[in-house]
Design a protein around this nucleic acid. Structure first.
Lengths: 182, 182
DNA sequence: GACTTTGGCTAACACCGTTAGCTAGATTGG
DNA sequence: CCAATCTAGCTAACGGTGTTAGCCAAAGTC
């Protein structure tokens, strides 16, 4: 947890965002309704709107929190090296598997960037860019691969017996080779 | 369009599925409500349930149609060759950009495989597997990359100026190189 | 002490997927 | 040919969603 993205809000607004995040992680997206958030905070749903503009903004607060946490996970990694890319990818997958509902909310739709805590998206993206040695195209390809593997795994899209560790390795090795020999 | 996946259903059920697909592609997922589907067919919403078990089954019919169409797009490709992978990937992206709402419905959640037209998922997956020379891990990595690039593009997740053609090329080349030199 | 702001509340709206129960008409069996 | 059944529509309704309007008591401020 980071609680860093939640600054600049009233305590009550932070309490509401925390309740919403907890609800999401416990019960999934269907559990995240304004009425249930309100119930958890001890008020009625319409009163939420005294603190939060609407559900989209509430979700944006949660997403900001998620980006901050993801950035922290990256930044806790051993400092760069020859297989920095593999490390970042492993951390990415780990985050998503640890917090699947949050990851889905963060990545499943267009981002309301204007509602996000400023800078938090770029901060989470930075480590991957560094791991590819500043190669934008490779970084985007690597992100796409990581997100694709992750979300397809979360959605149970691969065949039942599929060895995903090996598929991850195949992809990471291919991308790392492309980066190592420019 | 294929209309191949819709067999074994009453004409009315096929009409309903067609209306639902049209509604989805015109107005997006929010436009796909049982009441609006019913309106388009000229009946009231509860009457739909005389022909379709529930919304999930209706969506599964649409998804089956989507898989059949995607398979057709693949099968229309020039027969294999050294850069078969690049061709399949290009066709994949093209399908998704042409029919974004359908693509999102097909890939955005766990698949209710028991509700799908039989064999349609495997048929759509086959060309990619062939393009990687039967290498399962590479095929999965390539699929993940393609889906990641596609859905991140559809969701507007890359930076505004990002040159996605180059990112696609970077990824495809890396994966093709991994496949070509085993 | 009067005024304003804050943060609760209830009632309500328009939508959602879905179920129950009714019924006119078509189809089928004897 | 009539009776029974089945088909496919209907309305009303339930419990859920996000959200708005309008009211009001308590707290803070001049």
């Amino acid at each position: 947890m980071a609680s860093s993205a939640a600054s600049g809000q009233s305590p009550r607004a932070r309490e509401i965002a925390a309740a919403a995040l907890a609800l999401l992680e416990e019960d999934g997206p269907d559990g995240l309704s304004m009425r249930r958030v309100a119930e958890r905070v001890g008020i009625r749903a319409p009163s939420l709107y005294k603190h939060v503009p609407d559900k989209e903004a509430l979700e944006a607060a949660i997403i900001s929190e998620g980006f901050a946490d993801l950035a922290e996970a990256f930044e806790a990694l051993a400092p760069a090296g020859p297989d920095a890319l593999a490390g970042v990818m492993r951390a990415y997958r780990g985050f998503a598997l640890r917090r699947p509902h949050l990851y889905r909310l963060m990545t499943g739709r267009p981002l309301a960037r204007d509602l996000l805590a400023p800078g938090v998206e770029a901060r989470a993206a930075q480590p991957l860019l560094e791991a590819t040695g500043g190669d934008d195209d490779l970084a985007r390809a690597a992100w796409a691969f990581a997100h694709g593997m992750t979300i397809l795994e979360l959605n149970g899209r691969f065949p039942p017996g599929a060895d995903l560790d090996r598929a991850w390795r195949a992809g990471v090795e291919a991308l790392a080779a492309a980066g190592g020999a420019p």
